[in-house]
Design a binder for these strands. Structure first.
Lengths: 335, 335
DNA sequence: GAGGTTGTATGAATCGTTTCAAAGCGTAGC
DNA sequence: GCTACGCTTTGAAACGATTCATACAACCTC
């Protein structure tokens, strides 16, 4: 029923070795034989068994990518970048969604180890990298995505979130805002903590500027809206005049809350800036200023680092790449 | 370097068969032996080689899912549903993104065949199902997702899009709207064509109701906004008073266009309804009415059908599941 | 104590592909 | 006619987990 190289070999009256050569090194085989074998493959409907191939090779031809939230447009774009680079080298990407849960991250890690992936790209859920370190020690290249490794023990592709937070709030301050609010998620998430740190620095440099922190349980539109309502419903004098949201989903939610109050206008009364510059940001009612991260490039570069590591494990190539975030000004912070 | 069952067996002074039993049927092995083997596994850091396992088993433990656009929240949710059901049976889902391109779909199909996946869930790019039929004939179960198979040759999970279009426009008509506009994508996409067909039927049943079609090149927020601007910039008398968008992304875009014109109000002057009921729909400036599709359930059910087919290929189980869409009324179509 | 039963452990064979040393064959050079 | 060389093909070994018929031991039962 299932057609193997052996069957193809028999049908084409050649040895199995020749069939394999036709499949993998056709230039080593005479044109006539290639033709004969190709035809046999066609006729029998032969499909290579990848498991056997991998078993022999000892490695697969895939790369694992574990992200915090596959539904987030930012990570969707990172994944696309990773796929693009992998495809260039004939590899494929296996996507895992940890949903910000450590146990799910572990489960995927285990699964991918059994699959003998060539390497793992991961946006770690927490800062405990022990498991990853063990994986790495076990010979599996690891590249951190959107996360920097303090000890430099494995590769990483990151964006300077402290700088991003600094740029965002500096921009708000430069438009004359002084009462700044930061809408963030759980402080345990590194990205959130770093962006807040940057915000703090910017505020500290400006006389009369204040910063308050609104911490929400998740980085979602719904939570952003709740946070926005909280701020909006205060007496006008106590409202912030500039809001920095830790990501665009939160910003979009906050924007909705603000827009629904008739006498409150963005950016006239409150300026608002988000983070990530997802496609939606340019398409909200009041187009949203944001901090752009090169999502596609992050994924692309991460795979690139991984492939270099695979090619020459002890080579002198770059192991850490850090991008600078970029301010994108739109209407929500005008004037 | 790489640890195999053989090494574990030696370390625990048992046979390889016993190691395999500990791994797969621990109840067949005496507790003392289990303990000894487990410890050896731990000490040596043994990780099962999935390729060898699959080779022997003849099949993998994964299911392929190919979607039109992994970035679309609707498909993200379908994928999540599929994963959930697969996980219940100890299987994993391999996700492929065809990006609405036939060649990418083919490439993934080939890749997954080589991987000997247990089955393929696919939202086909076009209506030419020949390749899928061949795959199916070759013994790989195929389940169509969000697509119905006219010939009933393979399983399918779909939602009645004609009914959905009918319900959407009937709702607009019931609020007194008569000049209906349909904002759609390329008519070659089955979902779009069906929803339009439903809209036509509803209009045909109502005296004095008219339907115009605005066809955009893609189902995105940006295109929706462009379509909305087109309608909005007409003299008030020539504007539609009810708009049905083929999906929520288009609807969100149109809403933005409408909202930006001061003397045009939703729903007072134009009612607007979308399709899919993505999370964003409930969170737009004017909460969006929509047609809900049970995205999670679609994915869940598709895997379920596949597993049933695997369990008893000739069993008398359901092969086709069809869900009814559900009207979700929010502010954008009030009064 | 012969025969039966149960519980546990064994290890060679197997899956399908790739690899690689060796063989086959034709041709050119002397 | 012999050797040498290049091009092509061969086929057995290997990858690592699983399976299954078989062996062994211990315990009952009559």
């Amino acid at each position: 029923m299932v057609v193997s190289v052996r069957d193809v070999a028999a049908a084409a009256s050649v040895s199995v070795g020749t069939v394999s050569n036709v499949l993998n090194r056709p230039e080593k085989v005479s044109p006539a034989t290639v033709e004969r074998v190709t035809q046999a493959i066609e006729e029998l409907g032969f499909v290579r068994n990848d498991a056997a191939r991998q078993l022999r090779a000892g490695r697969s031809r895939s790369i694992a990518l574990i992200v915090l939230d596959a539904g987030n447009p930012f990570f969707a774009e990172v994944a696309r970048g990773a796929e693009d680079r992998a495809a260039e080298s004939g590899m494929s990407v296996l996507l895992g969604n940890s949903d910000e849960r450590s146990d799910r991250e572990d489960a995927y890690l285990e699964l991918f180890r059994e699959q003998r992936v060539n390497g793992v790209l991961v946006t770690p859920v927490d800062r405990d990298l022990d498991r990853l370190a063990r994986l790495h020690a076990g010979g599996v290249p690891v590249v951190l995505v959107d996360h920097e490794d303090a000890e430099r023990s494995f590769g990483s592709v990151s964006v300077d979130d402290v700088e991003g937070g600094y740029v965002a709030v500096s921009h708000l301050l430069s438009t004359g805002r002084r009462r700044i609010a930061f809408i963030g998620g759980p402080g345990t998430i590194r990205q959130v903590a770093d962006r807040l740190e940057g915000a703090r620095r910017a505020v500290a440099q400006t006389d009369g500027a204040t910063l308050e922190v609104v911490e929400m349980p998740a980085l979602s539109v719904l939570q952003g809206r709740a946070a926005g309502e909280l701020l909006r419903d205060r007496p006008a004098a106590e409202r912030p005049d500039g809001v920095f949201a830790a990501n665009d989903l939160l910003a979009v939610g906050a924007l909705q809350a603000f827009t629904l109050m008739a006498d409150l206008q963005v950016p006239r009364d409150i300026a608002l800036i988000g983070y990530d510059d997802i496609d939606f940001a340019a398409a909200t009612v009041v187009p949203l200023s944001s901090i752009r991260q090169p999502a596609h490039l992050i994924g692309y570069t991460a795979v690139d680092l991984l492939l270099k590591e695979l090619d020459e494990p002890d080579g002198e190539h770059e192991r850490t790449v850090r991008f600078q975030p970029e301010l994108v000004v739109r209407e929500s912070t005008a004037g």
